Amino acid sequence: MATVSAAITTADGTTAVAAGTHSHDLLESLDRPEAPLLVSPQDARELSRQFFARLAVLEEGTHEYQYVRNTLIEMNLSLVRYAAGRFRSRGADEMEDIVQVGTIGLIKAIDRFDVSREVEFTTFAVPCIVGEIKRFFRDTSWAVHVPRRLQEARVELAKATEELRSRLGRTPTVRELSELMSLTEEEVIEARKASNAYNSASLDAALSGDAAQDSEAALADFIGEEERALELIEDFHSLAPLIAQLDDRDRRILHMRFVMELTQAQIGEQLDISQMHVSRLLNRIIKRLRKGLLETAA
């Protein structure tokens, strides 16, 4: 059994140091609840003071230390439920995740709490729990990840827009928003664009309303256009080995005609041959490449 020098607060408020006190004896002096999860918030506040005092003098990693720490977690889970209640508008499906993340915040608060600062644990813990939940939303809720400064700017933009709309009776301009938020107009515009990354919709999701003529219509049916250049990519890949088989002059002719976009007469001048000869050479080269492509496709 581990032996420690313990600082114990007596009934009259004085502090006594019990050198050589066994950690088991420290636990025996605690008011240990039979069901920590069922302890009321008021009782948990009083009991937590005792448990934090013991946690401060117990050796980390011992059975006694783990018992005190775990009991503190269980007794204060009501703080997590209280903090999670602020986010109930997000729906029941997310509430389980919110409580789990809030519990992580509670554990971090217990590990960081310093009893010597004479601050109520609830005062210290609730901001830690809420902060952990907000970080969770900031890191996971965005459909497309954007920098943290833009995530925060989006929140401020929404507040400023609502404030000015109620004050002016209309939608505020970018300049008015920039003056209220102490940002440049470019930063306000950037924050607006970042807001579009918060939610996303599937291109295959069925549409309803006037835009869709039937229930099977999807967003992808109404946006975008065909890019014919993309259809040529496969042909380019197939052409590469065929062009590599040509001799230097044929490759040069192809380059001058289709890359440099020279006329047949200009090509003839550079090669010191007639325009008619260039035309025959181009026809022969193109027929050879077309035949090679057809054989590849077959």
Score class of each variant (00 low, 15 high):
E96A: 15
I98D: 04
T263D: 00
V68L: 07
F136N: 04
A218R: 05
A125S: 02
I8T: 09
F113D: 10
T140S: 14
T296S: 13
R170N: 03
I285S: 01
A16N: 08
E46H: 10
R117C: 08
T3Q: 09
I273A: 04
Y82Q: 10
S195Q: 15
R170M: 08
H237M: 11
T62H: 11
E234A: 12
L77V: 09
P172L: 03
E216T: 15
V57R: 05
G102T: 00
Q264M: 12
V119W: 01
S202C: 05
I8G: 01
D247S: 00
E34L: 07
A158L: 03
D247E: 04
Q100M: 14
T3F: 04
G91K: 06
P127N: 01
T14E: 14
G209Q: 06
V174N: 01
L150M: 02
D221M: 00
R135N: 14
K287S: 13
L183W: 09
K287N: 11
D247F: 05
A83H: 09
H277M: 13
T71A: 09
D210K: 11
T15P: 11
Q245R: 13
A7T: 15
D25K: 08
Q270C: 03
E46M: 07
V115E: 15
D204Q: 03
E120G: 12
V174Y: 00
N196R: 15
L177N: 03
A153R: 08
T161Q: 08
R86E: 04
A7S: 12
L242S: 07
Q245A: 11
F258W: 00
Q151E: 13
A16S: 12
L207M: 07
R280P: 10
D139N: 12
V188W: 05
F258A: 02
A92K: 09
L207P: 02
V188P: 02
M75D: 05
A16M: 01
T263L: 04
D25S: 10
I98A: 06
A211H: 06
V146F: 00
T161R: 15
D111F: 15
E96N: 15
I253P: 03
R251W: 07
E269H: 06
F258C: 00
L168Y: 06
Q266A: 10
F222R: 06
I267M: 04
T14V: 09
R249V: 04
R90C: 06
S141H: 11
E28R: 14
R88N: 10
A143N: 06
M276F: 10
L282T: 13
I98M: 01
R117I: 08
V130M: 09
A211I: 12
Q42C: 12
A18F: 10
V17W: 14
D272M: 01
L183K: 04
I133G: 02
E295P: 08
E96M: 11
I104Q: 01
R45S: 03
G91M: 05
A240C: 10
V99W: 04
Y198R: 14
E231M: 03
L150A: 03
A191D: 07
L150I: 02
V39N: 00
P241N: 06
F52S: 01
E216Y: 04
R90A: 10
A212E: 03
L294F: 15
Y65H: 14
D111P: 08
A6H: 09
M181E: 07
H277Y: 10
R32M: 03
P36A: 00
L271H: 07
A194G: 02
Q270S: 14
E190Y: 01
